[in-house]
Nucleic acid binder design. Structure first.
Length: 417
RNA sequence: GGAGGGAUGCCUGAGCGGUUAAAAGGGACGGGCUGUAAACCCGUUGGCUAUGCCUACGGUGGUUCGAAUCCACCUCCCUCCA
């Protein structure tokens, strides 16, 4: 189908969100006819979502902006089971307390991207623990379990490699796809939800839900997946030196977040602008036509827009300003991570390698010493070669000592109490 | 319950009595080249104010001058049989 009738499908296809759909034409017709209720599930396996989850989040956002109703399903119940899809080993089991804590922490981010409320197209958030924890085993097996073929489940791509490698797949995990399928049906009953979306790794789970819906409630359900986002050079997207790029400011500072987008590979800029910002396609087309070092302008726009959505306008501006002074003017700046140090320590002189460790630029002292030996350490923008160099008051510039590890990682040490 | 196989550094994976802080690859970090990109080349990659000391090859004991390597027991995993 070349030109979808619905604004929703047109938007997500144009912006690169569409990977697979159970019935594109029928879904298009339905979306064109009126509001569709659709959901995406987020398990509570970590205290925050990371940029990998931004594709589904942005998908919900576009859905809402096109006049439909998004449901954020917190996987408080499914997290107790653990999705085995495309994983070579079981996830560590989290206890209820950890799941509850993760859930509380994760739910905060959605208010940045969606508008919640009671209206027709307001987003709602529910937790599948509400109905999953109350299930009775035998009745569940009889009403739901009988619609699933073990033969078919074993042939799913999502568990094939686990089985092929003869890695253990516990019965607990094996239930995940059934539970997720049941979620879909439950959301249909409760909210009239007819669309489940998710990453491409969720395709099998989603299809099971669609089929279960046909058998249990006789309502046509739809499934839609987004592509797995990799970088132009083939790596998984969303990792940096410090690990995953989290959406929670406490786990990944806005500065690191901004830097992550700023460091996007050339070949990814256009695609990322479509996926991770609200900019109009026409603007994106203009930005991605830039060549050579001009692409850096497009990367700044990407960083600003993505940061604005996640952390707000003020943070985005601050990061952009910090980047300008740090990289374009080469001066120390307030936006850099700051470590305070008792004045007395400066008076007696702080050994260089210790300073780098303290500022978080090196994991251990040995690591810091290697950094200095390798010529990657700078003090106020001057390369230092002596690991034992004493940093003192005399090194303060504008009230701070600026340390750098490599070209990109900078930190300030300021005297204090 | 029985018979085999396995557990090594961030990951994969060699080693099978000393010269092994442990090959090789990946990843990561640093340097060079650049545009805060990619690719490529080089270096580093357990800790410690350090020509040395300490901690490490699933756990605990043992054999030995000496163990990741041999033995015993334990834990966990895999395969096959019941």
């Amino acid at each position: 189908m070349s030109s979808p009738a619905s604004e929703f499908l047109r938007t997500i296809i144009d912006r690169g969100f569409m990977h697979q759909c159970t019935d594109t034409q029928a879904l298009d017709a339905k979306a064109a006819a009126g509001p569709v209720v659709g959901y995406i599930g987020f398990d509570c396996t970590a205290p925050s979502l990371h940029v990998g989850s931004m594709v589904p989040i942005m998908l919900l956002r576009h859905m809402q902006q096109c006049g439909h109703k998004p449901i954020v399903l917190m996987g408080g119940g499914t997290t107790k089971v653990g999705d085995p899809s495309f994983r070579d080993e079981a996830r560590p089991l989290l206890d209820d307390e950890a799941i509850a804590a993760n859930k509380a922490s994760i739910r905060k981010v959605f208010s940045r991207y969606l508008s919640f409320g009671d209206g027709d197209t307001d987003a709602v958030m529910v937790d599948n623990d509400e109905w999953l924890s109350e299930l009775l085993y035998i009745p569940f097996l009889r009403t739901v379990g009988r619609h699933f073929s073990v033969n078919r489940m074993l042939s799913m791509d999502s568990v094939k490699s686990r089985l092929a490698r003869e890695q253990p797949l516990s019965f607990l995990e094996f239930n995940y796809m059934i539970i997720q399928a049941y979620d879909f049906v439950e959301l249909q009953r409760r909210f009239g939800c007819t669309l489940q979306m998710g990453g491409s790794d969720q395709w099998g789970n989603i299809v099971h839900g669609v089929e279960l819906g046909r058998r249990l409630v006789d309502v046509p359900l739809f499934g839609l997946t987004t592509p797995l986002i990799t970088t132009a050079s083939g790596a998984k997207m969303g990792k940096t030196a410090k690990g995953a790029v989290w959406l929670d400011a406490g786990m990944c500072s806005p500065w690191d977040f901004w830097q992550f987008w700023r460091n996007t590979e050339d070949g990814d800029v256009g695609r990322f602008l479509r996926l991770f910002t609200d900019l109009a396609i026409a603007d994106i087309v203009r930005l991605e036509s830039l060549e050579g070092s001009e692409i850096n302008e497009a990367k700044k726009v990407l960083a600003n827009e993505a940061t604005r959505l996640c952390h707000g306008e003020d943070e985005a501006r601050r990061c952009a300003a910090t980047a300008r002074s740090t990289f374009e003017k080469g001066e120390a700046s307030r936006g850099l991570p700051v470590t305070t140090l008792p004045e007395a320590r400066l008076d007696e002189g702080l050994v260089a390698f210790e300073a780098f460790q303290l500022a978080g630029l090196a994991k251990t002292r040995s690591d810091a010493r290697r950094l200095i030996r390798g010529g990657g350490a700078r003090l106020n923008d001057t390369v230092i070669s002596d690991e034992f160099l004493k940093i003192t008051r005399a090194d303060l510039k504008d009230g701070a000592v600026k340390l750098s590890a490599g070209r990109k990682r900078h930190a300030l040490i300021v005297p204090g109490s």
